[in-house]
Simulated scan of single mutants.
Amino acid sequence: MDTVYNLLLVLHLLGWAIVLGGVLTNLRTPRIATGVLHGILTALVTGILMTGLASAGVAADEPDNVKIGIKLVIAIVVTALVVVGNNRPERVTRGLLGAVAGLTAVNVAIAVLWS
Rank of each mutant, 00 (worst) to 15 (best):
M1H: 12
D2W: 09
T3M: 14
Y5M: 03
N6F: 07
L7A: 14
V10I: 15
L11R: 01
L13G: 05
G15T: 02
W16D: 00
V19E: 03
L20F: 09
G21H: 07
V23A: 07
V23G: 00
V23W: 01
T25P: 06
L27Y: 13
P30C: 05
R31S: 06
I32E: 03
I32W: 04
I32K: 02
T34C: 05
G35H: 06
L37V: 03
T42Q: 04
T42M: 07
L44P: 08
L44M: 12
I48W: 07
L49R: 01
M50W: 03
T51E: 13
L53P: 02
L53T: 05
A54W: 11
S55W: 13
S55G: 15
A56F: 14
G57Y: 06
V58Y: 11
A59P: 08
D61M: 08
D61A: 10
P63V: 15
P63T: 14
N65G: 09
K67Q: 08
K67D: 07
G69R: 09
K71R: 15
K71A: 03
L72G: 11
V73S: 10
I74W: 02
V77L: 13
V78K: 01
V78M: 04
T79W: 03
T79F: 02
T79I: 04
A80D: 11
A80Q: 13
A80L: 15
V82G: 00
G85N: 00
N86I: 05
N86G: 09
N87F: 07
N87K: 11
N87T: 11
P89M: 03
V92S: 00
T93I: 04
T93H: 12
R94L: 00
G95D: 14
G95H: 13
G95R: 12
L97D: 02
L97F: 07
V100E: 09
G102T: 10
L103P: 04
L103H: 03
A105N: 15
A105G: 12
V106R: 06
N107M: 05
V108Y: 07
V108M: 15
A109L: 13
A109T: 11
A109C: 13
I110C: 08
A111N: 10
V112S: 11
V112R: 12
V112W: 11
L113R: 12
W114C: 06
S115W: 12
S115L: 15
